[in-house]
Amino acid sequence: MMQACGVGRRSVGLGIAAAALAAGSGARRVQAQPAAGGAFPERPVRLIVPYPPGGPTDLVMRAFAEAAQKPLGQPIVVENRSGAAGTMGGQLLATGARPDGYTIAQMPITVLRHRFLSARPVFDPRTDFTWIIQLAGYQFGVVVRADAPWRTFQEFLDHAKANPGAIEYGSPGVGSSLHITMTQIAEMKGIDWLHVPFRGTAASTNALLGGQIAAVAGSIDAGTVGPDGPMRALVSWGAQRHRRLPDLPTLREVGIDLVSDSPYGIAGPKGMDPGVVRVLHDAFKAAIDDPGVRSLLERYDMPVLYLNSADYAAAVLRQIETEERLLARLGLRPE
């Protein structure tokens, strides 16, 4: 879970999320027999990915979908719905999706902040979802262009402090873990930099490469920040160093006592049949061990943080309490 975060210079309402219990464990090929009759699944399952195509989340979730559809016995069709810091999937689940298991969504931790960051929350993350499975977590960092003048994160911080308001960095949106943590770093170091929200990491990366912003806070793609890559990673935010970038220091190693390993999983609308939840859980649980999934998780330094349905729902409730206290302390609650 995200152990430390911070606020941004701007606050905007998000849109999403909620919580409800369900059961699950074991990975086997089986069809559920819902109380309403009929086997599940009998047709393709729609998986909402709340980020645009081409970014780390989209690529990883497409790999999960491809692997999970094998034990499920039906296709899993990915639908991208970007915006609102990754909360659009939760919004769609809570405002019209039927609880039949045929519409599910990837749920980042920003879903849990919705009711605390919006003056008019669409739903309550404690009650409006069926939590199916926690899969993995994001471990983030700060990336600049390969030709940027900063070779270390300390040089980047020194430049930002000496030039208030001159550094613009991109993130997936206001209220995201990336935005919050970057602002916490700024508060700790006495820095004034400008947050530029995008619809996803792919969009912010394009802006970075085009010279429109100075840095990106996001997942670190080990394939693009190497010696011959177009970007350079300055720092990672995990408790340990990036598995494929062992020379990249963590925030703690550069004197900033923060860790961000924001978890994510799969949920559906509230009121789902426990048998349907079990089938979906088992399919995605099996997908965790798929070689293609594991390769992408390693590439983007996303640790497996598996929890079954009941444990995931309980962890969500605990994290909601943590987020409420954190956002109140940082003064991000809307008036």
Rank of each mutant, 00 (worst) to 15 (best):
P269S: 02
L234G: 09
V30L: 08
A313L: 11
G15F: 01
V122H: 03
R318S: 00
S176V: 02
S82E: 15
R199F: 14
M88H: 04
L234K: 01
R294H: 00
S295E: 14
G54I: 02
L157M: 10
P71L: 03
H195G: 13
G211H: 03
A239Y: 11
Y102A: 04
Q139M: 04
A39G: 06
R81H: 07
S171T: 15
L194I: 14
G8W: 05
I185E: 06
R252V: 13
P71E: 08
A222W: 00
E66P: 01
R9T: 01
L47D: 05
Y138H: 13
Y306F: 14
V235I: 15
P246S: 02
P52Q: 05
A94Q: 09
Q91D: 07
P303D: 04
S204M: 00
M302Y: 08
K189Q: 15
I133T: 04
G96Y: 01
T95N: 02
L59G: 10
A4T: 09
A22Y: 03
L92A: 01
L14V: 14
S204L: 05
T130R: 06
P99S: 08
P164T: 07
G238L: 11
G238E: 11
A35E: 11
R115G: 05
A315H: 12
M302G: 02
T103L: 15
S204F: 05
H179T: 15
A32D: 05
L117N: 07
I213D: 06
Q319F: 12
F116H: 14
Q139K: 02
W193F: 07
Y138P: 00
R151V: 01
V77S: 03
V111P: 00
L248P: 12
G90P: 13
R9I: 04
M272I: 09
G6Q: 13
E79G: 08
V304G: 07
I320W: 00
L280D: 00
Q319M: 14
R145H: 05
M231P: 11
N163G: 09
G6L: 10
V277L: 03
I133Q: 04
L307S: 14
W237P: 07
I220P: 12
A39V: 10
V49W: 06
K270N: 08
H242S: 09
